[in-house]
Nucleic acid binder design. Sequence first.
DNA 1: GCATAATACTTGCACTCTGCAATCATCTGT
DNA 2: ACAGATGATTGCAGAGTGCAAGTATTATGC
Lengths: 168, 168
Amino acid sequence: MKQTAHAADDGLKLSTWLPYRLFLVAAQVARPLESFYGETFGLSQAGWRILAVIAERDAANASEIGRACALDPFATSRGIGQLTELGFAVRRAGKSDRRFAAVSITRSGRTAFNRIAALGSAIEARLLARLSESERATIDSALTRLEDESARIDAGGWRTLIEDAGAS
Amino acid sequence: MKQTAHAADDGLKLSTWLPYRLFLVAAQVARPLESFYGETFGLSQAGWRILAVIAERDAANASEIGRACALDPFATSRGIGQLTELGFAVRRAGKSDRRFAAVSITRSGRTAFNRIAALGSAIEARLLARLSESERATIDSALTRLEDESARIDAGGWRTLIEDAGAS
DNA sequence: GCATAATACTTGCACTCTGCAATCATCTGT
DNA sequence: ACAGATGATTGCAGAGTGCAAGTATTATGC
């Protein structure tokens, strides 16, 4: 397999590259939500994600929360700190093992969550309105596989990707 | 329409919320690529996006670049600055109107782009391998509409979203 | 024709976010 | 009881971000 001397381009075009397209939709849709909870409650992105997790799963510890919303332990700890300062969450020492700090949502935290979630649902509804019923089903099922594969890609790191590509 | 006193939750569950699912795939897939071009070339995310744009569109000015990769003028300017420092791009004063700085990719910029794009294509291939031909077609067409709708959502801001939702 | 406004872009500065080392508190195995 | 493991937190440096102000150039009004 011979390469041309004058470095022919890889065909990658940003606007048709799947990862960029996903990123674009995610980023554009996240911006209004972020400015809402930022301006209204002084919440960061990590804070919002943690709030959403503890809204549905009570008395979770930090690592569980981190796993559930793809945050590293540092960000998780800081996010929880922010939520407790805002009065949206409380830390309690774990029952049996006191290293695990059980985090719970407060009443005002739930109120804030509901206001943000309403906006979040409105955004989702706007997106879904542009899709047919069968498209929604296809995307739901496909996204499950994409989530799985992207987790593998992330876990493997770029060296693995190069090896795999080289071995084709 | 009466609300229950003990604040019933909005049904929003992070793990099934479409915007979060898109974000997750995009973020996980972007991380290995970012660490590759970060470690190898000292390139930032903005830098990579701009590089991808000038690889396919020569002598673009800053605003065109910014529009093509969804960056504000500040980030665009800094990204171009980074690329010129790395020797991956050159700024030339515009022909007729010298306020427009025409940015072009250099030979070494193109080499770098090709190496990164190879990895990008490998990532995309890994994702596409998990989808059937018809799923790919569905997602391609659906994403076009989602891109359009997310741009509208972004442009409208959160106040518009609340008004729309309230008027349902 | 010259002051003024508009346009394209850049820079400085303050602020936030992130990544990582070091640390603290607690528990487990021997 | 003590060493080491585990879960979580903190401090700090570096990178990224948003916005006001600035430069350079071109267009406009009188």
